[in-house]
Design a protein around this nucleic acid. Structure first.
Lengths: 114, 114
DNA sequence: CTAGATAGTTCGGTTTTCCTGGACAACTGA
DNA sequence: TCAGTTGTCCAGGAAAACCGAACTATCTAG
């Protein structure tokens, strides 16, 4: 793993278009849903396992990078792994209700499919 | 203008990922914001004028197509033009609160920029 | 300390998607 | 019939996504 510092935009430079783009992918949306549910940070592998996605490592790495640079998640190095968590309170203060209304919409869709 | 029929997905096959992808573009998001505000259908040129976008015609045509095929707007031919309107009530019944929370987030962002 | 295993990243090539100018089709009004 | 307007289609080039393979960094067992 590289030791290059992880870039996290500050809240003011988080954009809706960036957020929507980051969420406009089934895997990334599932990652965010999972991180929303989780109490503590989750590493990438664990997150991907939980959402039952068979996505190649390099693609996952990219997905997390996109989420991070959109300002949706925060990733801290913990030894070999990253501890990823949703920047929920921050996003909530900038765009109240946004995340949950999107996640709620996703839940409704999968509920309908059954 | 072609006379080929315009495809509109029915409500059940509208997906959040599709919706988010359609909205993850500044021009398309502005179009939706404008159509949300408008009482009646707006044609493409008029819509683009109102949002002050200097976007080439062919690109606009594609933007409207993407919004239409994501299920967000309905377009009816009225002579030489299209009358575009937001499928607000439908989307609202499938994904309650989604559209407005996204548009609200967009408003907040542009309010902050001033 | 070394070997092996694990977590992520980087690189390069392929595929896919996006953007746009230019030609075109359909309608309208003069 | 002709000019102007609205929108679509097409084809290219540009940009972004995807993914295998090689690599780095860290941890653990022996």
């Amino acid at each position: 793993m590289s030791t290059r510092p992880l870039f996290h935009p500050d809240l003011e430079s988080v954009t809706i278009v960036g957020v929507l783009h980051a969420l406009a992918d089934p895997v990334r949306l599932a990652i965010v849903a999972e991180l929303r549910r989780a109490r503590d940070g989750l590493n990438c592998v664990e997150t991907i396992n939980r959402i039952h996605a068979a996505t190649p490592k390099s693609t996952c790495s990219q997905h997390f990078q996109i989420l991070r640079e959109a300002g949706l998640i925060r990733s801290e190095r913990k030894g070999v792994e990253l501890s990823n968590s949703l920047r929920f309170d921050e996003i909530e203060s900038r765009f109240p209700g946004l995340i949950d209304s999107i996640l709620h919409a996703r839940d409704r869709e999968s509920a309908n499919r059954r």
